[in-house]
């Protein structure tokens, strides 16, 4: 039964919702506007109408070499995601289909590591990276990003696998399927939507990660997050260029997110309603 809502209330709510949405979105909007200004315009105070110049984008591209950090971002995001899946799929599989009385505790413990502030382990990790020569390398950072996102990946996959009814796996066993056939022909095809949305989410998380990428890189392995940060340099702040770099950093992931939003929402709410 629909709740009765009169037109005035409806209009009120709609206006309020738009105001809230605009307030939240405003910083991003202003970043986009600023990226289209000249540096003079950018520092001359609040102004919503830019001169629509692309000079900042051009400067970011040519002077600061956008493509190198972009390539690094792609390698880090995709690489850490593949690594995480290789580790997490068997882990989630084991916990979902052959749980012990400690499985829940292990899951909670893994998730609890995400509650710890990253700064708490900065010094040991920094030292390990320094001593092992992993500092400012793509491989070191890929492993690092894989590790920090692993708990979420395992947890998500576990939730997915749990939704696959055990009886279907038993049916496969009764039908003569060995473990390999069971995984290949029954489990994996059924889990593909879950694996896909976990992958998407992890790519986004890795792309946006800004603590470790800034701490553990200088130039060689620096991805886009570190690239943006480099614009607040000793020479002063270049607002227009910083904004242009930000827009260029978030654009790829926003576009990817936009096209895969259906898959993402399904992934994040999977199992929540049923």
């Amino acid at each position: 039964m629909a709740r009765a809502v009169n037109t005035r209330t409806k209009v009120g709510y709609t206006v309020a919702a738009w105001i809230v949405a605009l307030v939240i979105f405003f910083p991003i909007l202003y970043t986009i506007i600023t990226s289209l200004k000249t540096e003079q315009e950018a520092i001359s105070g609040f102004n919503l109408i830019p001169s629509f110049t692309l000079s900042s984008f051009e400067a970011v591209q040519t002077q600061n070499n956008y493509w190198k950090p972009f390539t690094n971002s792609v390698i880090l995001a995709v690489g850490s995601t593949i690594l995480a899946l290789i580790v997490a799929i068997p882990a989630a599989w084991a916990m979902a289909f052959s749980p012990t009385k400690n499985t829940k505790n292990i899951l909670m413990w893994m998730l609890s590591t995400k509650m710890m502030p990253a700064v708490a382990v900065l010094v040991p990790i920094y030292l390990i990276f320094l001593r092992t020569g992993l500092m400012d390398t793509r491989i070191g950072l890929t492993v690092m990003l894989m590790l920090i996102n692993l708990p979420i990946v395992v947890w998500m996959l576990y939730t997915y696998f749990r939704e696959i009814p055990g009886e279907i796996l038993e049916a496969a066993r009764m039908d003569g399927a060995g473990l390999r056939d069971e995984i290949l022909y029954v489990l994996t095809p059924m889990a593909i939507p879950g694996i896909a949305s976990t992958m998407l989410l992890n790519v986004i998380l890795a792309w946006n990660e800004a603590f470790w990428t800034i701490q553990l890189t200088t130039t060689n392995a620096a991805p886009l997050s570190a690239f943006i940060a480099s614009f607040s340099s000793p020479q002063g702040l270049f607002w227009a260029k910083l904004s242009a770099a930000s827009v260029m950093a978030i654009a790829p992931i926003l576009i990817m997110g936009w096209f895969s939003q259906k898959q993402l929402v399904r992934g994040l709410t999977f199992g929540a309603v049923k």
Binding site: E167, A171, M174, A177, Y185, P189
Partner: peptide, 28 residues
Amino acid sequence: PAKRGLAMVFQSYALYPHMSVRKNIAFP
């Protein structure tokens, strides 16, 4: 179970949702 030569029909039917009826029946 795979080697016992028995067939089972489950309460929840336990059909493979990603396969057609033909492929479900063909699976064993």
